[in-house]
Design a binder for these strands. Structure first.
Lengths: 148, 148
DNA sequence: ATGTTTGCAAATCCTTTGCATCAGC
DNA sequence: GCTGATGCAAAGGATTTGCAAACAT
């Protein structure tokens, strides 16, 4: 089953109404493996479904709903702005270079240890849908070293 | 040496001017081990130094400067808003319960493994000044279980 | 038919900017 | 005295809200 159909089915299960607008937002989010801003979503729809341009409030309300249903996660990209992405199973995460902005995808199992230790030590069940961690990538470290 | 004096000294080292306003913001940030919003900072100053209430732009500019000097970190609290805290050495981190909002302090060395693995696998040097991770605390898990 | 969702417009909130004045070094 | 910081007012941008009309079920 496609990502899209999967999500539509989940919405149905929750008794949510399937409006054209919701389908469009889901389609937009499915179109990219990476995160999208509200603007990106609007832009995707404007480009691919010219007749159905969505207003800002509508997009905000729909992603808010999808967030409440835990189908979408929200991340603040260090002031770049707030981005949204589908929560996939298992989730994947990002290392973001503060210098060049490049993004490295990280498998979820890197966080398994941490999850277990927090559960063991604090009884705290960490819920990581999408983690963005910042730092300096290999290339940029070289560049910095050469400067020195 | 107190946190406050330590910071003041660091500002001097960077050739920064030590205005009353900067002292006040630093004092505010020192007053709490936890994070503060811009509003919290203003409120602290209003309460403790009535004669020196600061305007928003001033507070924004000062924390921005402190961020640039890597003395303060900024975190987006899951849409609750943006908070600031002093970067201490070593940094400490937070587990935040999505249900009751309680906050558990986490020692930095929990992240040592992760740092090493990212460096080894991707050559990526993670820079974690302050990490906020969300989930469900022990108490709230019980509450959830009992409901079920 | 009913209750929900959408679109529009406008309000609100947070943050930044321009410029004249003031303060630290 | 020079340079940079502050305060004010106002602009800017992102997000939210109220309400009437349109739509899914």
């Amino acid at each position: 089953m496609s990502k899209f159909d999967n999500l539509v089915q989940k919405l149905r299960q929750h008794g949510e109404r399937l409006t054209i607008q919701r389908r469009l937002v889901i389609e937009a989010l499915c179109s990219s493996d990476e995160h999208m801003t509200i603007n990106d979503i609007q832009h995707y729809i404007r480009t691919n479904h010219l007749a159905h341009e969505l207003s800002e409030p509508t997009v905000y309300r729909i992603v808010q709903r999808l967030k409440d249903l835990r189908l979408v996660s929200q991340t603040d990209m260090a002031g770049t702005g707030i981005v949204y992405q589908l929560i996939d199973n298992p989730p994947h995460h990002h290392l973001i270079c503060l210098r060049c902005g490049c993004i490295i995808d990280v498998n979820d199992n890197y966080f398994d240890d941490l999850r277990q230790r927090f559960l063991h030590d604090f009884g705290f069940e960490v819920r990581i849908d999408h983690m963005a961690m910042y730092g300096v990538c290999a290339k940029c470290q070289q560049a910095v070293d050469e400067q020195a």
